[in-house]
């Protein structure tokens, strides 16, 4: 059975202008945070996005969430371009796409009680009467493994893991189809990370949720994702089903990234496989933007930017070697 595409991103670009001057501001350049990426997310599945800091993962998430307008390109929700949506369609789209962010300490308003935090999206979208909202809060608390008395407490009275549970409950409150998770585990301890990861997987099964998860921890992403996209300096270097990406990475950057992951085993020593630092997205190298660090770079790589090619079913790579 082929699954439905729930979100399609086509040739998405997001540039941030860099300006100079106070009164007469001139645009002197663009940070090409996201520079022409395309991918699909299938209903009920998880797409993981990985890549070094500043490569554009969060920007992609923010554009999908409507927090930033795209510079160009299309975002389709269930096959329809969201730019063409009417007000009511847009409103329902927003209901269906919710988010959980990295820092549970900052993403919850400190002056609100947990019950207010969790019911906030319901109030914004005018869903249900107050009593019904309260019932829903109780239901959500138990879904994420918290108890009813937690409803009356403030965020600072919780540990990091518990706060992330609150954020997940809030994201679930409107029964969204999709949840975007931007580094949801990075602020948590190892023993708590496993709890939250298990919770996310359980909730996904239960409600047929679609996830886009962003993380710098490749093992975490592998654990939860059906497909994984590897970003580098604003582009998608490679996107493939998880098992293929890990067992048979094609892009030299993916290969290096996988080799650099420290392994929790004293018998396995990690090699330094990538020298040099990530170049600035203000001025990405010409041609393939990975070429200054790429061990396999050819003359062609310095001149022309490789295009995304599907090398086996569902496995896409942007590299002149293929």
């Amino acid at each position: 059975m082929s699954k439905k595409k729930i979100i399609s991103v086509e040739n998405l670009k997001k540039y941030f202008p860099i300006t100079k001057g106070f009164i007469f501001t001139n645009v002197i350049g663009n940070v090409k945070a996201v520079d022409n990426i395309s991918f699909d997310i299938l209903e009920g599945q998880t797409l993981g996005l990985v890549g070094e800091s500043g490569c554009g993962k969060s920007t992609t998430a923010n554009v999908l969430l409507g927090l930033e307008p795209p510079t160009s390109g299309q975002i389709k929700f269930q096959g329809e371009d969201i730019a063409q949506f009417s007000k009511t369609q847009l409103f329902s789209f927003r209901r269906n796409i919710q988010a959980v962010f990295q820092d549970p300490f900052r993403s919850l308003s400190p002056r609100k009680k947990v019950k207010q935090i969790i019911s906030e999206p319901m109030s914004v979208h005018r869903v249900g009467l107050r009593e019904m909202q309260y019932e829903r809060v109780m239901e959500l608390l138990s879904l994420v493994g918290l108890s009813p008395e937690h409803a009356e407490l403030y965020p600072h009275e919780f540990s990091g893991g518990q706060r992330q549970r609150i954020a997940i409950a809030r994201a679930l409150s409107l029964n969204p189809k999709t949840i975007i998770l931007d580094e949801p585990l990075s602020a948590l301890d190892v023993s708590i990370q496993a709890q939250i990861l298990n919770l996310l997987i359980d909730l996904q099964k239960k409600f047929n949720l679609t996830f886009l998860i962003i993380s710098h921890d490749l093992a975490v992403v592998e654990h939860i994702s059906d497909n994984i996209g590897v970003m580098y300096l604003g582009i998608l270097a490679e996107i493939a089903p998880s098992d293929k990406l890990y067992s048979n990475p094609k892009h030299p950057y993916t290969v290096a990234l996988l080799e650099s992951v420290p392994i929790a085993d004293p018998d396995a020593k990690v090699e330094v496989s990538l020298e040099g630092e990530v170049p600035s997205p203000l001025n990405p190298p010409p041609g393939c933007r990975f070429h200054p660090r790429c061990p396999k770079a050819k003359a062609e790589c310095k001149k022309t930017e490789p295009e995304m090619k599907e090398i086996t079913s569902g496995h896409f790579v942007s590299c002149h070697l293929y």
Binding site: A194, Q195, N198, I201, A219, E222, H223, Y246, S247, A264
Partner: peptide
């Protein structure tokens, strides 16, 4: 023991991660 078991290992996906329940 719990700490080591709860770390996901790259390339060794398991059905369910071991998790130490409870709070610090």
């Amino acid at each position: 023991e719990g700490l080591i078991k709860s770390v996901p290992v790259l390339g060794k996906r398991v059905k369910r991660l071991y998790a130490i329940e409870g709070q610090p």
